[in-house]
């Protein structure tokens, strides 16, 4: 495996192998010397066309823990603003010695295009492309659920509810594909305008009522941010109305089971899609997600760059 641009590139076995590897590599993060020599001499470039401090730092630390050299290229503030194409930027970075490019891009498909057009020979990791996919986020979510639920290799029978702005969410798409690949039952919930019925074809259930979806007693509730930056025009009447129907708060928060895991890919909008009460509850695994993000990205970089042999 050379690239990771979509969960579609994984089968159940390879997904479990990445999670297993992430568990092992994660142990490094609690050692005194948090470093392995696996990628010594290799260079990883974080090529970010969208601002994302959290994901960029996570990839950066992951690469450094494997002893790779890391270059951060914030494309929004570089020569790209002078009109340089993705092709030229990527080829320039490779000429400078990049062995892998971790790319975040506002356009769906950009990572796959970079991996398949023949522009470069190195590995490509998708760190989020438009509304398409964010595979390492789904892997870290799967790892978090697997750890807390102690469900063995996969996520068989675990009920996951993903709530909010599904339409614009690459996190939701990657999670539907990965969690169902691992045997979980995924339900998406959100207002009709942000959750078209066509999502069902990806292998999940659809609900337009948060209360009804919670009544199914999900094991995991993942809250998504409303992505105003990807919206053209109006999708719901007001933030107040959205929060009234779709925020994890009040009566809905009380409907959660004792063991229900609360997830959020961050950054959270407290008081909008999630209340303080929910975000700070012991059932919230938001910081575990962040920690697992590091291990999963180490596992992915290791798999793509060090090879399996």
């Amino acid at each position: 495996m050379k690239h990771l641009t979509s969960i579609r590139e994984l089968d159940t076995g390879s997904a479990i192998a990445i999670l297993d590897n992430a568990d092992e590599l994660g142990a490094v993060n609690s050692r005194e010397v948090k470093k392995l020599p696996a990628l010594r001499g290799k260079t990883v470039v974080n090529l970010f066309y969208e601002n994302s401090t959290r994901t960029r730092i996570s990839f950066e630390i992951a690469a450094k823990r494997l002893s790779a050299d890391v270059i951060n290229f914030a494309a929004a503030t570089s020569s790209v603003s002078k009109g340089e194409s993705l092709k030229d930027t990527a080829q320039t970075l490779e000429a400078l010695g990049a062995d892998a490019i971790v790319i975040r891009h506002p356009m769906s498909g950009a990572a796959q295009t970079l991996a398949t057009k023949g522009w470069i020979s190195g590995s490509v990791v998708n760190a989020g492309d438009g509304s398409h996919e964010h595979p390492t986020q789904a892997l870290l979510d799967a790892l978090t659920i697997r750890q807390i639920k102690k469900s063995g290799d996969d996520l068989a029978g675990i009920k996951v509810l993903i709530v909010g702005d599904i339409q614009h969410s690459r996190v939701a798409r990657s999670n539907v594909l990965l969690l169902s690949l691992l045997g979980a039952e995924v339900t998406l919930a959100g207002p009709e305008t942000l959750l078209p019925k066509t999502f069902a074809a990806m292998g999940c259930k659809i609900s337009h009522s948060f209360e009804e979806a919670l009544a199914e007693k999900p094991d995991v509730v993942m809250m998504l941010r409303v992505q105003r930056e990807r919206m053209q025009g109006t999708f719901f009447p007001s933030e107040r109305e959205y929060a009234a129907k779709w925020s994890l708060s009040g009566e809905r928060f009380k409907m959660l089971g004792n063991q229900t895991i609360i997830l959020h890919p961050g950054p959270m909008n407290r008081g909008f899609e999630i209340s303080n009460e929910a975000a700070d509850d012991p059932r919230s695994a938001v910081l575990t997600q962040v920690r697992n993000g590091l291990s999963v990205r180490m596992a992915v970089l290791y798999k793509l760059m060090a090879g399996e042999g």
Binding site: E133, R170, Q232
Partner: peptide, 16 residues
């Protein structure tokens, strides 16, 4: 506005 491909299950999956 901003449309990229046929609207349907595939455009949903591809995020276009």
């Amino acid at each position: 506005e901003g449309s990229q491909m046929n609207s349907g299950e595939l455009s949903t999956e591809l995020g276009l």
